[in-house]
Amino acid sequence: MTTLWDTTGSAVVKELAAQRRTGGAVLSGVALTLVVVADESRVAEAEEAATYAAEMHPCRVLIVVRRQIEAPVPRLDAEVQIGGRLGPGEAVVLRMYGRLALHSESVVLPLLAADAPVVAWWHGPPPERLATDALAVFADRRITDSSLADDPREALRIRAEDYVPGDTDLTWTRSTAWRAVLASTLDSVAGRRGDAVQIRGGRIEGDPHNATAQLLAGWIASRCGSSIEVTDGSRHAGPSGVESVVLQLDQGEEVRVTADHRSGAVITQPNRPDGTVALPARALGDLLSEELRRLDPDEPYSDALEAATGVSGLTERSPEREHVWFDPTEDGERTDAPAAGSTS
């Protein structure tokens, strides 16, 4: 690893090229560029998750840390490494001070892997409008995490208002295990009955303020056309905010899936003994790795987001964003006019 103090973007590019020549590394196996935006307090978590994801998906990792925007003199410090602590590929940690932090794309753009998709991940509360961050404008896919907001349910609504195809959220990814268990359970009921299963209604018992629980309810509602409520359950629902899911089926049947934090989930269905399936807790790197498996718009997520927030027409929006200049040091004022030189 090489640390460059008070450096420039061009010096970082040259150092990365020099290390590639020295180490004999090649870019032919790079599937994408992962741009991580994190506060200094969350850098260690972001690095650990990005390292795990880079082992699963060969990529160039660029970690952007915006520090002391009010500093009078802009400065860039960088760590450049290949095959180091941030995974087997190329990685650069960029710490930006002063006004440079508001123009981080000027440093990031020359570092993108050529002809490779760009995925941006905000490990922290995302901007209310992603278009105010130029890193979101040139990214092919954008990953946020509403669970880190002060009000996760309100954050979901903001994500729906700001949504364009290509957006996703780790609160949605946290529901993957629950969705898989519910789908397999209903398939089992359909196989036993010999016909299709229709969901007439149901509820989720857990934390109504948890964004994952709300998205899971939205996903079920978008698939069955019935309202699914999140009711207040115990205080031990875990990161997903879901303690149990109860579905009322046609023919008067009911299916219940209850989280058992010792063994997974217990499935209760008519005319069968209770069964247990795995429902493992997932690390942040595993969640990020799942989202890097796809680069196309996640339509089930947009359907669930629509149902959970009541904001419609998400899939009909244009996938392109136009940069909107926003200076957080100017009392939160912003202009809706595109920034000079912005791209879409």
Results as ranks from 00 to 15, higher is better:
G9C: 09
L16N: 02
L16K: 01
A31F: 01
T51R: 15
Y52I: 15
E55L: 15
P58N: 11
C59I: 11
C59E: 07
R60V: 15
I63P: 00
I63W: 00
Q68T: 14
I69M: 12
A78S: 03
A78F: 00
E79M: 06
V80Y: 00
G83N: 06
G84H: 09
R85T: 13
E90G: 07
V93M: 04
R95F: 01
L102M: 14
H103C: 12
L109I: 09
L112H: 05
A120W: 00
W121D: 05
T132S: 08
P152K: 03
R153K: 13
E154D: 13
A155N: 06
R157W: 13
I158L: 14
R159V: 15
A160M: 13
D167N: 12
A177S: 13
A177C: 04
A190T: 09
G194R: 03
D195G: 13
V197M: 10
I199T: 13
I204N: 03
E205T: 14
P208M: 11
W219F: 12
G225Y: 07
S226C: 13
G233V: 10
R235N: 08
R235D: 09
P239N: 11
S240G: 14
G241K: 06
Q248M: 13
D250I: 12
V257E: 02
V257I: 15
A259M: 10
Q269M: 15
Q269C: 09
P270M: 08
P273Y: 05
T276G: 03
G285E: 07
L287R: 01
E291M: 10
L292V: 11
E299V: 13
P300T: 07
E306A: 15
A307P: 02
G310D: 07
L314S: 07
L314M: 14
T315K: 12
E316T: 12
R317T: 11
S318R: 09
A337M: 10
A339I: 08
A340G: 09
